[in-house]
Amino acid sequence: MTSIPQMPKSWRLETKPHKFCPGCGHGLVLKALGEAIDELGIQDKVIFGCDIGCSLLAWDFFNVDTVQTHHGRTTPVVTGVKRANPDTICIAYMGDGGGYAIGSQHLVNAAARNERITAILVNNCNYAMTGGQMAPTTLPGMKTETSPYGRDIKEAGYPTQGPEMVAAITRDGSYVARGTIANLKQLKGYFKKALENQMAGNGFSFVEALASCPTNWRTNAKDTWNFVEKEMPKYFKVGEIKNPAEKEGE
């Protein structure tokens, strides 16, 4: 073990250290993604689309072609790229607000059309970039700026179960999983499978990543990890939900 953290080859060194807050989950998710890109050797083919949300900070994060889009609109932008140039490997990187609220119609329909793209959604239980409002994924009872007394499920409903929804509306060929920054090796594995699924031309692939936002959660390191490791998985079950590759092996 070396004490110097290894940066993935696909990371853009000039823009490191990155701009996320200390302890932010985005950086870890992008580390796992960078390693997945490295291990698959696809850096020159990747189109990385980032949403508006804290993911916008990733616009110059990788040494890959990158387009920053609008809040919720990354899925259609990379869909447009992929449809126009199927040789590319397209990644749509977004937050839970971007994917499950303002851009939910794009996620649902890209999944239903089985677009050959990979959507990666960072679930941090809030709208982080705008200062910690309630998101579709805010946990019941969880306090945010717009649910100061805690999310009331009678008013606001239950947290969106994104991968489960995507799994329910996709048919053969889609890959769906939920990983977490608490298990980066597993998360990287999901990313690799999701990208391989796109490369094989099977169909839509979707990975939600449970991630931390200590700034808006107002948590210290210990509480942050406790929330990621203990609280979030109570509602968001970590694991693979759909894997076409496995089906073939049966």
């Binding site: 609008h70 932008v77 447009g80 790229v81 449809r83």
Partner: peptide
């Protein structure tokens, strides 16, 4: 090619994706 999208937001943004792809 043609892609029928889910709405005009998507029609516009996919068009931009297509243009960005050259």
């Amino acid at each position: 090619r043609f892609l029928q999208t889910e709405d005009e937001l998507s029609a516009g943004f996919t068009t931009l994706g297509g243009v960005l792809a050259g």
